[in-house]
Amino acid sequence: MPKIIKNGQLIDDDTRILILDESQAPEELTLAAGPVFVPFAVWQAHSGQLSGRADLGVWLDSHEDVAELVPDLDRIAAIALNFPKFTDGRAYSAAALLRTRYGFKGEIRAIGDVLRDQFFFMQRCGFDTIQPKAGKYSDAQLEEALASLKDFSTPYQAAVDQPEPLFRRAQRAA
C-alpha cells in the first residue's frame, strides 16, 4: 500500500484522489466505495448525500478559495490542498486560513507536486498530512525525508504549528 506522512510518521494510505476529466459532469458522477478525496465541484453537487462519510474528503486546487468551504466545514472530515506546481505557494495561505481563521480541526493534506524540501513549511502552515505523488519517492526515500520536517528546530515567526513568535516564546538575552 502507498505510504504517506501523517503527523510526522509514515503510514499506509490508499485514499484515492478523484480527478474529473472534461467529459465528466460533477452532477452525474456516481462514487465508488472506499476512501476518496473528491473535487470541490463534486462536493458542491453532492454534499447532501456525501456529508457524514468519514472516508471522504474534499480537495481544492490552488486557485479555489477555501472560504467557500466554510459553511460545510463541520461536515467534512478531511481537506486536501493541491500544489499544481511546488512553486505555487497559495496552498500555504489556504491551510493557514483553514486552521487559524476557520478553526478546521480535521485532516489537511498536501497533494500534488509535493516535495520533501517543502515539508517543513507545509507542517508549519497546518498541514498534518503529506502525500507526495505516487512514485515520486520510494518508501525508503520517504522515510529519509521525514528528517526534512525537522530542518529548523526553533523558527522565528509565529505560524500554525507554533502560534507564538520566538520573541514571546523565549527569553532572549539582550
Binding site: 511546488f86 512553486t87 505555487d88 505557494g89 500555504y92 495561505s93 493557514a96 517543502q118 517543513f120 513549511f121 507545509m122 508549519r124 502552515c125 529548523f152 523558527p155 522565528y156 515567526q157 505560524a159 513568535p165 520566538l166
Partner: peptide, 13 residues
C-alpha cells in the same frame, strides 16, 4: 529580517 527568515507561508510567492 527575523520575521521574514523562513516565513513558511511566504516562501513561494
Amino acid at each position: 529580517r527575523q520575521w521574514s527568515t523562513f516565513h513558511p507561508e511566504f516562501a513561494f510567492l
